[in-house]
Amino acid sequence: MQTHDVQIDGDLVRKRFIDGKPGGAEREWRALQLLAEHAPGLAPSPVEYGTDLVVMSRIEGTPLFLLPAVPERELVEAVDRLHGAVPRQVLDRVPQRLWPVERIRDQLLVWAGRWRPKNELADQAVAEGARWLSGWEPGERGVRPVFGASDGNRANFLWDGVRVRIVDFEESGRSDRATEVAEMAEHVSCWVRGESELCFELDSAEERRLLECRRLFALMWVFLLKDEGPRNPPGTFMRAVRRALDRLG
């Protein structure tokens, strides 16, 4: 499902939001402005903002999802720069990411309640996941506020041969370090063609929160992939099920 229409006009990119969900263009524009001021060069430069429209500079690069090998060090450097870019006094005024973990937890419980039996392993993952979600309170433990893109899709990270830059901020906002790292680690684009574990610097409380958030996002992909389509290789859904059971175990 497309959430936006992108047109390239020379050195400019015109991104029009077509999914009818409010706030996407505003979040994208806010992110581009913040990063242009606090981390220039990491993302496209903001050019023009209108109703459901963001115009930005075009940046060159190949999406990491298409590369045979991910430049892991440069990817970590780009994400570290993103997370540390916005000063705390500015970050405190930035709205939360579109899907904070509490909202994801509540949505997954709704989906679990509507689950129709599929196969033994998938049903087990949903049942065990629902039990864990029902007792999980994220709280403030392990929270280090950061500005997050809140989308771990490796198609949004571009490699130009020297550095990694980032695009697509329609779900961005104030987040925390462990949540953002977990979302990247469990995004289907990060494991569907072979797995690699990125090494981010986290303190002990963040490491514990990371494990919990990885459970959350692994479960999320079980629901998102249950109606397996042509976008991913055959068997992707069952790989997601096994990942979720591993995280829960």
Results as ranks from 00 to 15, higher is better:
81 R>W: 01
111 W>C: 04
122 A>T: 08
102 E>D: 15
74 E>G: 04
115 W>E: 10
126 V>W: 02
140 E>P: 02
85 A>G: 06
139 G>C: 09
106 D>Q: 12
121 L>T: 09
70 V>W: 13
139 G>S: 05
96 Q>K: 00
103 R>F: 13
78 A>E: 00
108 L>W: 11
81 R>I: 02
114 R>L: 13
120 E>A: 15
139 G>Y: 06
105 R>A: 08
135 G>S: 13
64 L>F: 11
85 A>L: 09
69 A>V: 13
68 P>T: 08
70 V>A: 02
124 Q>T: 15
121 L>R: 14
132 W>K: 02
66 L>E: 14
124 Q>H: 09
109 L>G: 07
143 V>W: 05
136 W>T: 08
74 E>V: 00
103 R>G: 10
91 L>V: 06
129 G>F: 06
73 R>T: 15
78 A>N: 03
141 R>P: 04
129 G>V: 10
96 Q>Y: 08
85 A>K: 00
65 F>W: 12
126 V>C: 09
106 D>N: 11
69 A>Y: 00
88 R>Q: 14
134 S>G: 15
71 P>T: 07
128 E>I: 01
90 V>Q: 06
143 V>T: 10
119 N>C: 07
140 E>S: 14
137 E>I: 12
110 V>D: 11
107 Q>W: 13
116 R>T: 12
99 W>A: 06
78 A>G: 01
90 V>N: 06
90 V>S: 07
100 P>H: 10
112 A>G: 07
86 V>I: 14
95 P>Y: 07
133 L>T: 09
98 L>M: 11
142 G>W: 12
78 A>P: 03
117 P>M: 02
73 R>F: 08
63 P>W: 00
127 A>W: 12
138 P>S: 07
63 P>A: 03
125 A>V: 07
77 E>N: 09
140 E>M: 09
142 G>E: 11
73 R>V: 13
99 W>R: 09
125 A>C: 08
67 L>G: 04
85 A>Q: 02
80 D>L: 04
110 V>Q: 13
133 L>W: 09
77 E>M: 00
94 V>A: 05
88 R>I: 02
143 V>S: 06
105 R>D: 02
90 V>Y: 05
129 G>E: 10
73 R>G: 05
91 L>M: 05
62 T>C: 04
100 P>W: 03
70 V>F: 10
71 P>N: 10
75 L>G: 00
108 L>R: 05
